[in-house]
C-alpha cells in the first residue's frame, strides 16, 4: 500500500483510540465534579423528592458506567443527547445548541488562519533571508511584543484604537499636545477602518457582514499567534541553511531567494506545520477570552456558560469537539510532514 495512505489510516485509527480514551477522561472528570445540576436548577429549598424526580427525568440517577455507555452509544448514532435545560415537551438537543456556536467559532478560526498563516510564513521566510539584519530584528521585536501582552489587553487596545478615532481630537490629551501633532495623530487614527467593537452576530447575519463584524477578534488572534509560527518558520529554515546541500546550492550560483525557497523550505515543512497545527487548534479551543471581550457567540463562551449551569451533556460535547480538533489537526500536520519528505513518499 502507498506509505502515505497507510500512515493516514494508521494515524486515523490511533486518533479514534485517543478520542475514545479522552471520552472516558472527560466523562469521569465531569462525573467527579462537585455540585449537582438538579440542586442548582431547583434551588436550596427543593425537597429531596423533587430533586430525585428531576434526576430521574434527566437520567442522572443511573450508575456512571451505564450512563457512560448510553452516552457513547448515542454519540455513535450521531445523537449528542439532550441538554439538561430541556423540559417535557420542550426538548433542546445538544447538537442544536452547539451547531451555531461551532459555526461561529470555525468562522473566526478560519478567517484568522487565512490571515495569520500566510503572514507568519511570509515574515518567517523573509526574516530567514535577511537574518540578523534590521528587517529580521524588527519583525522579531514586533511579534514578540504582541505575543507578550495578554490577549484581552491586545483586544481592548484594538477596540480603544477604533473608538479613539472619533474621540481623540476632543480629548484633554489631544489638547495638551501641540496642535500639529494632535492633527497628524488624528489623521493617522482616521485611517483606521471603523471596525465594530462588538461582534454580535446571529444566524441571519449575511456572510460579508459576518466577516466585517469579526475583524477585530480576528486581528487580535492574528497578533497573538503570528509570532510563534513566524519564529518557527525562521528557525527551521535557518537550521536547514547549515546543510551541505545549501553550500552546494551556493556554489552552483543560486540566488539567496532561490536557496531559501527551493532548497531550504521544502526540507523545513515538518517542524513548521506542527507549530501551525498547534496554533490553529488554539484558535478553536482557546479563544474564550477574546470571545468574551468582543461578545462573540462562539463555542468557548457556550462551554463556560454550560459549566456554570452544570449542563453536563453540553460540556461533554464541547470537550469532545476540542479533543477531536486537536487530534485532527495533528493528524493533518503528520500527513503533510510525510507528504513533503521524499524519503517516506518514495521509498527505495
Amino acid at each position: 500500500m502507498n506509505p502515505v495512505a497507510r500512515t493516514v489510516l494508521q494515524r486515523l485509527g490511533l486518533g479514534l483510540v485517543t478520542l475514545f480514551i479522552v471520552s472516558i477522561i472527560i466523562f469521569s472528570a465531569i462525573a467527579m465534579l462537585p455540585g449537582d445540576f438538579a440542586r442548582a436548577m431547583l434551588g436550596q429549598s427543593a425537597t429531596p423528592e423533587t430533586v430525585a424526580a428531576f434526576q430521574r427525568e434527566i437520567g442522572i440517577d443511573r450508575p456512571p458506567v451505564e450512563r457512560y455507555f448510553v452516552w457513547v452509544g448515542q454519540m455513535l448514532h450521531g445523537d449528542f443527547g439532550s441538554s439538561f435545560a430541556s423540559r417535557t415537551g420542550y426538548r433542546r438537543t445538544v447538537a442544536e445548541i452547539i451547531a451555531p456556536r461551532l459555526y461561529n467559532t470555525m468562522f473566526l478560526a478560519s478567517m484568522t488562519a487565512l490571515i495569520a498563516v500566510p503572514l507568519a510564513l511570509g515574515l518567517g521566510i523573509l526574516a530567514a533571508l535577511y537574518r540578523n539584519g534590521w528587517f529580521d530584528r524588527l519583525v522579531n521585536a514586533v511579534t514578540l511584543t504582541t505575543i507578550s501582552f495578554p490577549e484581552f489587553f491586545v483586544a481592548y487596545m484594538l477596540a480603544y484604537l477604533v473608538i479613539s478615532r472619533d474621540t481623540f481630537i476632543g480629548s484633554e490629551f489631544a489638547q495638551s499636545l501641540p496642535h500639529w501633532l494632535a492633527l497628524s495623530l488624528n489623521w493617522i487614527l482616521n485611517a483606521v477602518p471603523k471596525f465594530p467593537t462588538l461582534s454580535n452576530v446571529n444566524d441571519q447575519t449575511p456572510f460579508w457582514e459576518h466577516v466585517w463584524r469579526v475583524a477585530l477578534p480576528a486581528i487580535t488572534l492574528t497578533l497573538v499567534i503570528v509570532a510563534h509560527m513566524m519564529r518557527m518558520t525562521r528557525a527551521a529554515i535557518i537550521n536547514m541553511l547549515a546543510s551541505p546541500y545549501i553550500d552546494m546550492a551556493r556554489l552552483k550560483g543560486m540566488s539567496p531567494m532561490a536557496i531559501v525557497l527551493r532548497h531550504a523550505l521544502p526540507n523545513a515543512w515538518a517542524p513548521i506545520v506542527t507549530v501551525v497545527a498547534f496554533n490553529l487548534a488554539y484558535l478553536v479551543v482557546g479563544v474564550v477570552v477574546v470571545e468574551v471581550v468582543f461578545v462573540y457567540p462562539g463555542i468557548g463562551q457556550l462551554m463556560v456558560d454550560a459549566v456554570k449551569s452544570r449542563d453536563v451533556p453540553v460540556v461533554q460535547a464541547c470537550a469532545l469537539i476540542f479533543a477531536a480538533t486537536y487530534i485532527l489537526l495533528n493528524l493533518t500536520a503528520d500527513v503533510i510532514s510525510i507528504a513533503t519528505n521524499p524519503r517516506l513518499l518514495h521509498p527505495r
Binding site: S243, P244, Y245, D247, M248, A249, R250, L251, K252, G253, M254, S255, R262, H263, P266, N267, T340, P342, R343
Partner: peptide, 24 residues
C-alpha cells in the same frame, strides 16, 4: 561571482549523499 559559479566554475563535493538536496 554568483553568475560565474555553476556556469563557468563548478564544484563537486565530498559527500554526494549530503550535497544533493533530498527534496528534489
Amino acid at each position: 561571482r554568483r553568475r560565474l559559479r555553476g556556469s563557468r566554475i563548478a564544484y563537486v563535493a565530498q559527500s554526494a549523499a549530503a550535497s544533493f538536496n533530498p527534496a528534489h
